[in-house]
């Protein structure tokens, strides 16, 4: 049987198979490539395009996917990837790993200054991050990279960026009007119902320990280990992170703290944490801040409803 195998049979036979398969699984899909642009599609600007080059040159694609799947409900499946999102990507940067987060809808999730602090050193804004620092790129490159990241999500990102810019102006104005005005302004932008709610759970050593852990994992890069807002990210962020130690006697309820952690303060570098922290963790870290940094907590005061079953 093996006599039938001649060099010609091997070389031309295998090339023939390859040609046939290539026709079916590469060429056929390629000839049907005329994908319509999706509803969020837009072209990138020159600055965003140069940022994309930096993204590719430095292998960001090895850790960050750009494709949200139907099963990504915990990652923010607000928008599932469509073929029409990628029609000007050459090469396409779908990515094959999520060592870091998916970035396909990252644009406008944070304001620019958050990204710059994060590129200088990712642990400045995300203490547990394992992304390497990119300070060595230089500020000009970091800015075009930021422009590219802020374009991810295209028209959807543009809408979110518009919101960031609108509120950035407002939070900056409030900050510049001095601490008293700033704190009042921040509290006023929490819905009234939340403002009147004290922290319903009592202060316990276990609760404070949980709060301490959450604070270390999420907060101290900006607000610093002693809550004075002078964390390592502070020089890059404007308006700067809030100094909790000035909040005493300024009617900051547990509900206000909870709402600000949950929802973030769009425009400022304060992100929303509702995707990452469950309810108990937000109450606990809020009470940790109240007890240790504000030195004034309304935990377990009226009105508090029926005690939860675990309460001592």
């Amino acid at each position: 049987m093996s006599q039938e195998m001649t060099p010609k049979a091997i070389i031309f036979g295998s090339l023939l198979i390859l040609a046939a398969v290539t026709f079916v699984v590469v060429l056929w899909p390629y000839t049907h490539r005329h994908t319509a642009p999706s509803e969020i599609y837009r072209q990138r600007t020159a600055l965003e395009e140069s940022g994309r080059k930096i993204y590719l040159a430095n292998g960001c694609v090895y850790c960050h996917s750009q494709s949200i799947r139907t099963i990504d409900w915990g990652h923010g499946a607000e928008r599932i990837a469509q073929a029409g999102d990628y029609i000007s990507d050459e090469p396409v940067a779908l990515g094959s790993a999520r060592t870091g987060v998916d970035l396909s809808q990252e644009g406008g999730e944070h304001p620019d200054d958050w990204h710059i602090a994060h590129f200088i050193n990712p642990r400045y804004t995300r203490p547990n991050s394992i992304m390497p620092p990119f300070e060595w790129l230089g500020m000009e490159n970091i800015k075009s990279l930021t422009a590219y990241i802020q374009s991810l999500g295209m028209k959807g990102a543009d809408k979110r960026m518009q919101r960031q810019r609108h509120w950035k102006e407002q939070v900056a104005t409030a900050y510049e009007a001095g601490p008293a005005h700033n704190i009042r302004w921040l509290a006023e932008h929490v819905p009234e119902g939340w403002r009147n709610i004290p922290n319903p759970y009592p202060t316990t050593p276990a609760g404070l320990a949980r709060g301490h852990k959450i604070y270390q994992d999420f907060c101290l890069g900006c607000h610093s280990p002693i809550g004075d807002g002078m964390g390592p990210a502070q020089p890059w962020i404007y308006p700067p992170p809030l100094n909790f130690t000035i909040l005493k006697g300024r009617e900051i309820s547990g509900g206000i703290i909870y709402y600000q952690i949950m929802n973030g303060i769009t425009g400022s570098a304060m992100p929303y944490f509702k995707k990452e922290l469950e309810s108990e963790k937000i109450w606990d870290v809020g009470n940790y801040v109240a007890e240790y940094f504000i030195n004034q907590s309304d935990a377990n005061t009226e009105p508090k409803g029926i005690d939860a079953s675990y309460e001592p």
């Binding site: 699984v25 590469v26 899909p29 390629y30 490539r33 994908t35 073929a83 990628y86 029609i87 000007s88 990507d89 050459e90 090469p91 396409v92 779908l94």
Partner: peptide, 9 residues
């Protein structure tokens, strides 16, 4: 590279 999803294929 090709462009878009065809590039991934």
């Amino acid at each position: 590279a090709l462009v878009g999803i065809q590039d991934a294929i």
